[in-house]
Design a protein around this nucleic acid. Structure first.
Length: 105
DNA sequence: CACCTGACCATCG
DNA sequence: CCGATGGCCAGGT
């Protein structure tokens, strides 16, 4: 038994806590987990998450308000986000000022 | 044990 | 605005 939860567990919990119609950046997610510099690890963890997971990994974007994924993932995420009422800009850019979730509702 | 990779971010010119 | 660069850390080979 680990008293100390793994970084991965924290990330998983946070992802499941993202409200609908909101998004988070990798950096924000890392800060919320308590490890602001672990942004690269967040990347590793999320990348490991299977597409069929219950976790809304499609609500995770990069700091530029754009999807950091390519190909099939990009399409899937974009559709999921639009289905939640999130509007994409002319260059498929999301307004972080409006949708970014920093832990408070 | 050393090197490479990764769905990133901030800074600089 | 955009490209290049450095930093960050763990996991895989």
């Amino acid at each position: 038994m680990n008293n100390t939860p793994s970084f991965q567990d924290i990330i998983y919990s946070l992802i499941g806590a993202i409200p609908k119609g909101r998004v988070v950046t990798y950096g924000t997610l890392a800060k919320m987990a308590g490890y602001p510099s672990y942004v690269r690890q967040v990347c590793q963890v999320i990348r490991k998450v299977p597409t069929g997971s219950t976790l809304p990994c499609h609500r995770i974007i990069n700091g530029q308000g754009k999807l950091s994924v390519t190909g099939e993932h990009y399409i899937r995420h974009k559709k999921a986000l639009m289905g939640e009422g999130i509007i994409f800009g002319p260059n498929d850019k999301i307004k972080l000022k409006q949708y970014l979730w920093e832990g408070f509702d």
